[in-house]
Amino acid sequence: MLQSLRKLVFSDRSRPYVATLIVGYLVWMGWSYSKVSTARTKEVVACTQSPDECRSEKVFLALTEVREVGPDTITVRKSTVDYVIAGVDDPVHESEILSVIATIPDSPDQPFQAVSWEHHPLRAWKVRLSLLGLVLAGAVTLGSFRIENRRVVERG
């Protein structure tokens, strides 16, 4: 059973069909996930429009980028959406990465109220390490694989 499934998935004969099926599945999965993940953003925006329905509900904004620092508020960006937040009373600077738990405001013109927040001072080093990792991954790929008879093969 397992042997025939392996043959079906990995044989040259079924290759174009398997590849098409996988690409189709991944596109569908990506589309489904984008719907789920944007639904929460829409929910939060809807809450700010009719705050009575979700008064004091919390939003979790993990690893957001600080876009603006005002006298009483900061603006952070999560994905493509900006959130104005009050109550972060630590020193915060622009382009810093911050995780915030905040409550939804009572009216659309008010800022979100921060309940707790976490600074990520080592984030820049993590990005640098990941860039180094990208270069190493490129080197591993070029150094460890070669093309032979229109197929990729491992060296050694």
């Binding site: 990506g30 996930y33 984008s34 719907k35 993940s37 944007t38 953003t41 994905s79 493509t80 959406v81």
Partner: peptide, 10 residues
């Protein structure tokens, strides 16, 4: 916005 989330499935 949805397009920025879609690759996350990988």
């Amino acid at each position: 916005e949805g397009l920025t989330h879609a690759p996350g499935v990988l």
